[in-house]
Design a protein around this nucleic acid. Structure first.
Length: 259
DNA sequence: ATGACAATCAGAGATTGA
């Protein structure tokens, strides 16, 4: 089972680029972030015609997550538990059934800039809710993963120029501590365990020729629960997608599971 | 120190992103 995460930076603007990548990468499941669309305007029929089931959790203009799946999706839930007043669409879950059933969670973690400030407070509070959701998923002792745009640069080797991010919400000590607290529950950073080296990124800013200078950061991650980590076969970043026509500023990261 | 670039909504330019 091949499961990918892709922050597409607007579904309407990315229909062609996403479709091209789907045809060649042939993922079974794709967790999308920043669809920037309400559910009614998501080009559902287009992706259904490509063989995917479509589940969305959108809002107007910003944020928004979705799942595309060639395999049946069951028990879909929307919204990260823990704050009924939170109206930002950043979390969707479903169970994918093939040889094994895997609970997949798609997430778009708040950016948090400027820090300090209310946006950073929201980011840290959201990460605390994520920690609690992970604890509950761990209790099930079933295979699960949480993948998406975490907006966290875990370590200096995950940035081409770590000094440029020192005071940024993506790399501040409190952000990294919250990331470690999550991982230390017993989750596996799928890419990091398969590729221990530096220089692997998932995001390059549109500005200042970041892509041409390979001035990137690794902020899109796949965290695996223990039973899911047992099934891990492969994890890769499709970096070449960033060099194409009308690209997102993020690229896909995917895992292949023995499931 | 600032803006650079892109998407959205709207129908110009502000807002957001990372």
């Amino acid at each position: 089972m091949k499961i990918a995460s892709f922050n597409i930076n607007g579904i309407k603007a990315r229909i062609a680029a996403l479709s091209d990548w789907l045809k060649e990468a042939e993922p079974d499941v794709v967790l999308l972030q920043e669809i920037k669309s309400v559910d009614e305007n998501f080009p559902r029929a287009h992706f259904e015609d490509m063989g995917y089931a479509v589940e969305t959790h959108g809002q107007k203009s910003f944020n928004g997550v979705a799942i595309l799946s060639k395999l049946p999706l069951e028990d879909v839930t929307r919204g990260l538990p823990g704050d009924d007043a939170d109206e930002q669409a950043r979390w969707i879950e479903a169970t994918v059934v093939d040889r094994r059933a895997v609970r997949v969670c798609g997430l778009y973690l708040p950016n948090g800039n400027p820090a300090p400030g209310p946006k950073y407070d929201y980011k840290l509070a959201w990460m605390d809710r994520l920690h609690r959701r992970a604890q509950d998923l761990l209790k099930s002792e079933e295979p699960f993963l949480m993948a998406g745009d975490y907006n966290v640069i875990p370590q200096d080797e995950d940035a081409a120029r770590p000094e440029a991010w020192e005071k940024d919400a993506l790399a501040l000590p409190d952000s990294r501590a919250a990331w470690r607290r999550l991982v230390n529950l017993g989750l596996t950073d799928a890419f990091r365990v398969m590729e221990p080296g530096a220089g692997h990124y998932t995001f390059w800013d549109y500005q200042a020729g970041a892509w041409n200078r390979d001035d990137g950061i690794r902020i899109d991650h796949v965290l695996l629960g223990p039973q899911c980590a047992d099934l891990l076969l492969e994890c890769q970043i499709d970096r070449e997608v960033r060099g194409r026509e009308k690209p997102s500023d993020h690229v896909p990261v995917w895992v292949r599971l023995d499931a």
